[in-house]
Measured scan of single mutants.
Amino acid sequence: VSEWTEYKTADGKTYYYNNRTWESTWEKPQ
C-alpha cells in the first residue's frame, strides 16, 4: 500500500493521501 502517505494536519489529526489517485481519507487505508 506504498502509494498512501500519512500526514498530520495543523491540529494534530492524521490523514492519508494517495499519490496515485490523488485521493485523501481520514481512515487508515487497507
Rank of each mutant, 00 (worst) to 15 (best):
W4R: 02
N19F: 07
E27T: 09
T21V: 02
E6G: 01
E27S: 04
E27Y: 07
N18R: 01
R20Y: 14
Q30M: 13
T14P: 08
R20K: 14
Y16L: 01
G12S: 00
E27M: 04
K28M: 07
Y15R: 05
E27G: 03
A10S: 10
K8F: 10
E27W: 08
T9V: 01
N19P: 09
S24P: 05
W26S: 10
T5Y: 11
T21N: 06
K8A: 06
A10P: 13
T14S: 10
E27L: 07
K8I: 13
Y7S: 10
N18L: 01
T21P: 02
N18I: 00
S2I: 12
V1F: 15
T21Y: 06
Y15F: 13
E3R: 02
Y17E: 08
P29W: 06
E6W: 04
W4G: 01
P29D: 05
T9D: 11
Q30C: 14
T9R: 03
S2D: 13
E27I: 09
P29M: 04
V1M: 13
D11L: 05
E6R: 01
K13E: 11
Y15I: 11
T21E: 05
G12D: 04
K13V: 10
Y15L: 09
E3N: 04
W26K: 04
D11T: 10
K8P: 02
R20H: 14
E3M: 05
K28W: 09
T14E: 05
E23S: 01
N19L: 10
P29R: 01
W26H: 12
T21K: 00
K13A: 06
Y15W: 11
V1I: 11
K13H: 09
T9K: 03
N19D: 11
G12K: 00
G12T: 00
Q30R: 06
Y7I: 12
T14A: 05
K8M: 12
E27H: 08
W26A: 12
T25N: 06
R20D: 14
Y7M: 14
S2A: 13
D11A: 05
N18V: 02
Y17R: 06
A10D: 08
W26G: 08
Y17L: 10
S24G: 12
R20P: 07
K28G: 06
T9I: 02
Y17N: 03
E6D: 02
W4Y: 04
K13I: 09
Y17W: 13
E3T: 04
Q30K: 10
V1K: 11
K13M: 08
Y16E: 03
P29E: 03
T21L: 05
A10G: 07
P29Y: 04
E23P: 01
Y17Q: 07
W4V: 03
P29H: 05
Y16T: 00
Q30L: 13
V1S: 12
N19V: 11
R20G: 13
T21R: 05
R20V: 15
N18Q: 02
V1R: 12
S24M: 14
T25Q: 12
T14H: 06
W4L: 02
N19A: 08
S2N: 10
S2M: 11
N19R: 04
W22V: 07
E3F: 07
R20E: 15
D11H: 04
Q30E: 14
E23R: 00
N19I: 11
E23K: 03
Y15D: 05
W26T: 12
T5H: 10
T5L: 10
W4N: 00
W22R: 15
T25L: 11
S24T: 15
E23G: 01
K8H: 12
Y17H: 07
D11W: 09
S2V: 08
T25H: 06
W4I: 02
T5A: 10
W26V: 13
K28H: 09
E3L: 05
D11F: 05
E6N: 00
E23A: 02
W26D: 12
G12I: 01
